[in-house]
Design a protein around this nucleic acid. Structure first.
Length: 266
DNA sequence: AAAAACTGCAACCGCCCTTGA
DNA sequence: CTCAAGGGCGGTTGCAGTTTT
């Protein structure tokens, strides 16, 4: 069964936005706030698809966007998050204040991919290229995730030999709403990726290594990106609880402290 | 100086998930 | 419980700007 188009394409503009369209959109959202994208174009007097308006606002017009070049710190954070999350750009963007998923996705495809290849790492698996070929298809969440970290300097992975990169790792995601989010009274989300998709910020990930007794928590809060060997994160944004607001995220306070990511940072 | 090739980014497309009737 | 509508996301495309030949 077909799906009705999101808008009447015959009467909508496409392509680059004009300044006037931007002004109309900004003015409307300032006055009425976000929401109901489908009816927004009409209300704002725009000949645009609602989706297009949403995208334009989120990716370009939002006042809290940072824009400008990515810092090395952001680079490394993106790489680390991508290693853990795969192409979950919205989740990754949730950890980078002022950055959008689209921006990060573009930056990944144009800069970071090349950067990793130059290091001899497979952008998909974050493993050394020759090793990555051997385990093609076993990466990221869809493949059960991995806490393995390739060793860029030695060309060896820090994975233990026993797990062969597919030890049935269950990546258990639990994410609380962004600290600056206006989302009201959302209950603590269940540890499920689908929920995680919508939340977008303070994240504590728990790896359950079925093949061993170890349980490591990976905190992705901006202040403490790292593994915690069975301990709660001390950052305040620990676990799945959204009852307590995590500390305000500042880029300058980020740290890359993956306990088992021995040398993948540069 | 002009043409070709490359790069980066904004925007679109189509699918999936959630929600509400 | 079912289904349609709407929102959100990831992948892809198109084009303008930049660099190289």
């Amino acid at each position: 069964m077909g799906r009705s188009p999101c808008c009447e394409k015959a009467h909508t503009n496409k392509g680059a936005w004009t300044k006037e369209e931007d002004q109309r959109l900004i003015a409307h959202i300032n006055q009425h706030g976000e929401g109901c994208w489908r009816s927004l174009p009409k209300a704002a007097g725009l000949l645009r698809c609602g989706k297009s308006c949403r995208l334009r606002w989120i990716n370009y017009l939002r006042p809290d966007l940072k824009r400008g070049n990515f810092t090395d710190e952001e680079d490394e954070l993106i790489i680390k998050l991508h290693e853990l999350l795969g192409n979950k750009w919205s989740l990754i963007a949730g950890r980078l204040p002022g950055r959008t998923d689209n921006e990060i996705k573009n930056y990944w495809n144009t800069h970071i991919k090349r950067k990793l290849l130059a290091r001899g790492l497979d952008p998909l698996t974050h493993r050394p290229l020759n090793a990555a070929a051997a385990v093609a298809g076993h990466h990221h969440l869809a493949a059960g995730g991995s806490s393995c970290s390739p060793d860029a300097t030695s060309g060896h992975s820090s994975c233990s030999d026993g797990d062969e990169y597919r030890g049935g790792i269950d990546l258990n995601l639990s994410i609380s709403p962004p600290s600056s989010s206006s989302q009201p009274s959302s209950p603590p989300p269940p540890p499920h990726e689908a929920e995680a998709r919508r939340a977008g910020a303070t994240a504590s990930y728990t790896y359950h290594h079925h093949y061993s007794e170890t349980r490591e928590k990976i905190c992705l809060c901006l202040n403490h990106l790292g593994l915690h060997g069975g301990d709660e994160c001390s950052c305040g944004g620990s676990s799945a609880s959204s009852s307590s607001s995590p500390p305000p995220a500042t880029a300058s306070s980020r740290a890359f402290t993956f306990a088992n990511a021995s040398s993948s940072t540069v």
